[in-house]
Design a protein around this nucleic acid. Structure first.
Length: 804
DNA sequence: AGCACGCCGACT
DNA sequence: GTCGGCGTGCTC
């Protein structure tokens, strides 16, 4: 008897293991490892999705207690052996559920959606309210959240009495798209003959015949036909009834990009510096070695062209290539470059696609018709066979780390896949993460450098404006005179300006000047931000909204004021200073709608706006020749975060955004406003000297025993009851002290930066260590045990990207 | 997660 | 004595 090991779609510690199911004889030979199945689970035998991870032969006696697989969802596996092995590794290293790992590897469209359906069996036995619930239908979808408690109870009673039954269904979220196609059944002569018989007032039908006469035996999409000859769907139906044409269904691929809008490009000649880099990686492609390269190249040094040619080298060897970029870089510019070079063999995976588009792109990769894959973080799981090269651009970007389960880092997954495929990895950045740069130092990564810009244009001049002094001469606490003057100058010259302010909303908090009351979120320990355009006070953590107060909610005083500056307020001020300037604002609030993001950038790119104002999402990958001024309104926001990476992140952000100025022939200028002009991160950013920054920061990390000198693990607990959270975490800390060697360091337990979010109290501790062979086992054991702690949620994060 | 079982209080 | 409240524990 065949028995399948199935990972079921119940993301919980207790179910995080394979369950055995009998493979019915009707499925024997059809079921293989990596397929999705639907299985009954639990006492109620509700149907849920699962993944087959193993098939074994078992004696009949052992299978009697097992349930049977209800259904197979796939003809061919959706997960190949590589992906299954990767999922195992991912679950173990990130302390995640196996099912969560498997689910992140497949497109959302293939993820089963569970539905509950109630069916009325004995209409005569139920009361009026249930009859109303069912209406005319015998079945209704059951959504307990939408039902009144009373109706829900009645349904339960009816179910116990046997007059209603509960059914379960699992469906795919997306299916291949089918369109109606029309096929002509007439010859030219037949069409012409029929045309004579038609009455003159049936002009729609005559149109159809005309068309068929001109295009005998054609196949065309019905929608297209309707538009082309101006007839309705009803007319087509009539024509089909008359046997003039046949209506059929055809599967069409949804496309992630529009080839007609992209012009083809050819390989550019590499400079000798580029050539050197190219050759070293190309050699690794040829020899199929899993070498990891760190490509450190200043902004504008021509990394992208090297990437394109390396991917071409892999293609020439009949291998495939994967290019990962931060989501934000997946702009039309980037897409145009890759698609322009490689055409329709490119598959694109990013969050702007619909579920169906994503599914189709994924299928194209899986069946081998796409050979170049460009995508954001999750594209690292693209089911590419025969990988020749993996490139991870802007390797320092924090968006490569997923912040919910499974908490993986795309860089680590890329390195794993490179080992599996024996292919090189290129990690590219102008400002590598300290971890990667340190690995290059140690020889773990092969270090490649491009220290010069390709057009030999100098890097833009960066000046720091001391806002403490500026406050004495400027009337505006947000703008120095220097910055205002520089903006004015560009506007006169019709050049473009990018302004960065790392804070959205209008004002950051509301305070009463009478009693000092600050308006806070009721669910989180954080002040509410004023959003003037929506006329609400908003919590940036849980989304809570409330009206803007007129008077102090505590003392009733009218002396309330809004402090701090967000993008909305700056936009308002800018418009006041420069009445005719066209300003675009780009932050979470203006880009929420699908495609809004691209629209804003396209408008700016076409020079339909003069100033682009935004949060850090504007810092990366934009390349607009008319931008000659970049202004950073307040460099201190990211600097003052209580995180050991604050300097690194500030340096990276400032360097990235500086790189947006003066990309083409015109000279660029960068103005950074700050209250800490002497801070080393700003000083090195001014000089745009990554290497010096690296050396300096590494010294500090060494002194403070921080990464990359130490590994870190964060243990966080979350609970509605604060004492419960504290007690549990202290118990863990106590146990840790027994296990850890004297070299390891334990920080905490302490409350997290924001103690309470969504009404849960949050505490955490940090372990810093170099070599603790027992630690990982203990942590796995801890998670195993944590299921008993029902009221407290335990989260273990390896190498957390921030300590807050 | 979600469902059944089981053990307590408010009612016919 | 029963219904139905929610806490507890298991799911091939």
């Amino acid at each position: 008897m065949q028995v399948a090991a199935v990972i079921v779609d119940v993301p919980a510690r207790q179910t995080d293991r394979p369950f055995s199911y009998v493979v019915g004889s009707e499925l024997s030979g059809k079921l293989t490892v990596g397929m999705r199945v639907i299985v009954p689970f639990g006492r109620g035998n509700r149907l849920i999705q699962g993944f087959v991870v193993g098939i074994t032969e078992k004696p009949l006696a052992e299978t009697s207690k097992l349930k049977k697989i209800s259904e197979v969802q796939d003809l061919t596996p959706v997960l190949n052996p590589e992906m299954l092995a990767l999922a195992d590794w991912l679950a173990a290293t990130t302390f995640s559920f196996k099912i969560s790992c498997l689910q992140t590897m497949i497109p959302n469209g293939l993820r089963g959606k569970s539905e509950k359906i109630v069916r009325l069996l004995a209409p005569e036995k139920v009361d009026q309210s249930l009859k109303d619930f069912f209406g005319q239908k015998a079945e209704q979808q059951l959504q307990p959240a939408k039902l009144s408690a009373e109706l829900f109870r009645k349904l339960q009673q009816a179910r116990n009495a046997g007059s209603v039954e509960l059914l379960y269904q699992v469906k795919d979220q997306a299916r291949p798209r089918q369109v109606r196609v029309v096929q002509g059944l007439l010859t030219t002569q037949q069409a012409q003959a029929l045309k004579k018989q038609q009455r003159a007032n049936a002009h729609q039908l005559l149109n159809v015949l005309d068309f068929l006469a001109k295009n005998p035996q054609i196949t065309i999409q019905q929608q297209q036909l309707e538009k082309q000859i101006g007839v309705s769907a009803a007319t087509i139906r009539t024509a089909a009834a008359k046997q003039w044409l046949k209506v059929d269904y055809q599967v069409v691929k949804r496309s992630a990009y529009d080839l007609t809008t992209i012009s083809a490009t050819t390989a550019k000649k590499l400079t000798s510096a580029q050539q050197q880099v190219y050759q070293q990686v190309a050699a690794a492609i040829q020899q199929q070695t899993a070498t990891s390269f760190l490509l450190e190249g200043v902004t504008g040094s021509g990394k992208t062209e090297i990437y394109l040619q390396l991917m071409a080298a892999a293609l020439a060897k009949k291998q495939n290539a994967l290019l990962l970029v931060p989501e934000i870089s997946l702009t039309p510019q980037m897409v145009a470059q890759v698609v322009g070079r490689f055409g329709k063999q490119v598959a694109l995976l990013h969050s702007g696609l619909s579920v169906g588009e994503r599914l189709d792109e994924w299928r194209r990769i899986e069946n081998g018709s796409a050979t170049i894959i460009v995508g954001a973080r999750s594209a690292v799981f693209a089911p590419i066979k025969n990988l020749g090269i993996i490139i991870l651009d802007e390797e320092h970007e924090s968006s490569y780390a997923q912040d919910n389960m499974p908490r993986y880092h795309a860089r680590d997954v890329a390195l794993w896949r490179s080992r599996y495929h024996h292919c090189p990895v290129v990690l590219g950045s102008a400002t590598p993460s300290l971890e990667s740069r340190a690995r290059a130092q140690k020889g773990v990564y092969h270090w490649l450098q491009l220290p010069e810009r390709i057009n030999t244009r100098p890097l833009p001049a960066v000046s720091l404006v001391d806002m403490r002094q500026a406050a004495q001469t400027s009337h505006d606490s947000d703008f120095s005179n220097e910055l205002l003057a520089a903006i004015k100058q560009r506007l006169v010259k019709q050049e473009q300006i990018i302004l960065l302010l790392n804070r959205r909303g209008y004002a950051t908090f509301m305070m009463c000047r009478q009693c000092g009351f600050v308006l806070k979120c009721p669910n989180c320990d954080i002040s509410l931000t004023l959003h003037k355009d929506q006329q609400v006070m908003k919590c940036h953590y849980c989304g809570h909204e409330e009206p803007i107060p007129r008077k102090c909610p505590a003392c009733g005083s009218l002396k309330i004021r809004f402090y701090g500056t967000g993008t909305q307020k700056i936009q308002e001020k800018l418009q006041k200073y420069f009445a005719t300037a066209r300003i675009l604002r780009m932050d979470v609030d203006t880009t929420r709608r699908k495609g809004a993001h691209q629209q804003i950038l396209q408008r700016f790119g076409r020079h339909q706006a003069d100033i682009l104002l935004g949060t850090q999402m504007i810092a990366k990958g934009l390349d607009y020749p008319d931008v000659t001024l970049v202004g950073v309104l307040n460099a201190d926001t990211s600097l003052s975060l209580p995180d050991f990476r604050a300097s690194e992140q500030t340096f990276q952000l400032l360097t990235q955004v500086s790189g947006r100025a003066g990309r083409a022939k015109k000279e660029g200028k960068v103005i950074i406003q700050t209250f800490n002009p002497q801070h080393y991160a700003l000083q090195f950013a001014k000089k745009q000297d990554y290497e010096k920054f690296y050396a300096y920061e590494m010294r500090l990390r060494h002194q403070g025993d921080y990464p990359p000198y130490y590994f870190t693990i964060q243990i966080a607990v979350n609970a509605v009851s604060e004492p419960a959270a504290v007690k549990y975490l202290f118990k863990i800390a106590h146990e840790l002290k027994q296990i850890l060697s004297p070299e390891a360091k334990l920080l905490g337990p302490v409350p997290q930066m924001i103690l309470r979010i969504k009404n849960h109290y949050r505490y955490h501790l940090i372990i810093k260590f170099k070599h603790e062979p027992q630690l990982l086992d203990y942590l796995h054991h801890l998670l195993e045990k944590s299921q008993q702690q029902k009221a407290v949620q335990l989260i273990i994060i390896r190498e957390p990207t921030n300590f807050m």
